[in-house]
Nucleic acid binder design. Structure first.
Lengths: 205, 205
DNA sequence: GCAATTTTTGACCGTTTGGACAAACGTTAA
DNA sequence: TTAACGTTTGTCCAAACGGTCAAAAATTGC
């Protein structure tokens, strides 16, 4: 209904190079934002010349759009996995764990996403209103049901989800600040484990 | 010890114009980030020409630096006000309230700050390690003491503070997303009040 | 082995941007 | 009135940037 999205047939090299460029672009974009990044920087990071890169992507905008759309899927996956038939505490705990793991393992993706939202989500607003809202509506209903059944402490399911997002992504997006405040001793690798434990206690009181 | 900071004597016009430029720069920088903003945009927003603006500020960097340093004070004020002698629940509740009010009333400041941290805090890292860390160390000790006395549910005081920061600032920084998900009905002005109530319940369980 | 196709490169272009500068304008106070 | 000082503007520049293009080089399919 939306778009046939006539999948362009790609050669092996095209697939590989687009992948390589995506990786390089993620590195650069997540550090400097869209406007702060240059095609030259990305080309450098990908080990190729600018015109060569532009042979694989029409322009800077298209690189960014491709990245962020791919990202959205990864990003929503953990929430999708939340199972209405499962045990509420187990489900919530797993969700928090997975989100913290994503902050630990994919901080660049998290920052790229944060950057886009901060700027007003110019490129993905339709997805927020559409796909994201639908998913959250669905899961909020699940949580609300759990609360009604007395299997989870009553509160606002939407703000409950927001709070999980905010706290878990904080450890990727505000990493510098977290490490600066925790200092040498507690700012090491263990901080994600500490965070996960704290958040489980907070949300599953 | 640090810098005599020989306060430059300014004329009335200089004070007024620098203020005007600061306001305009906040508007522009918070929307597009540092690299995404141009001096021309800021000059336009301030209703003056580019060379005129550069008569009041040496360069783009200095405008940004001035803004973000001024901002830090405002930002830390609510935490500073947390009183060790007060009632723990009242103090925490007030802190959350104040932070939510800041997200509602000064979203541009919040986004500017978030942007800076996201990029790795290139301009304010020393402040994070210094002033901010000291303040948090102090208040974390206060909270830890409250917990030891059994006047507040036990948890990690540092992550407790992080969680308050993350959740409250979320409503400024991720505003577009929050509104997109909540939709027409719940995404109106009332969302801050809803958030405040939810967060009080979450942190003061 | 060779022609067709895909990939890579260097040179180039128009625009945007941060910033410099000198000249003009306005204000103040002796 | 006038000299000194503060403010504003138009013009200009060099660098950075996004993107094009034609031609060279490499790869692929027969």
């Amino acid at each position: 209904m939306d778009k046939p999205a006539a999948r362009p047939k790609r050669t092996r090299i095209q697939r590989e190079k687009r992948e390589l460029i995506g990786e390089a672009a993620l590195e650069v974009f997540s550090q400097h934002g869209f406007r702060g990044s240059t095609i030259d920087q990305i080309a450098d990071a990908a080990g190729m010349s600018k015109p060569n890169l532009l042979y694989y992507f029409k322009n800077k905008e298209e690189i960014f759009a491709t990245l962020i759309h791919r990202l959205m899927e990864t990003w929503l996956a953990p929430l999708r996995e939340m199972d209405a038939a499962g045990d509420p505490h187990t489900e919530i705990r797993s969700y928090i764990r997975r989100k913290i793991e994503m902050s630990r393992d994919f901080p660049r993706e998290s920052r790229l996403f944060a950057n886009e939202i901060l700027q007003g989500a110019p490129r993905i607003f339709p997805l927020l209103e559409g796909e994201l809202k639908e998913l959250v509506d669905e899961k909020a209903a699940v949580i609300a049901e759990w609360m009604r059944e007395g299997r989870l402490k009553k509160s606002d399911p939407y703000h409950f989800i927001f709070a999980i997002w905010a706290t878990t992504q904080h450890y990727a997006d505000f990493d510098v600040q977290v490490r600066a405040v925790l200092g040498e001793k507690r700012g090491g690798e263990g901080r994600f484990e500490d965070a996960a434990r704290f958040l489980e206690g907070l949300f599953l009181a």
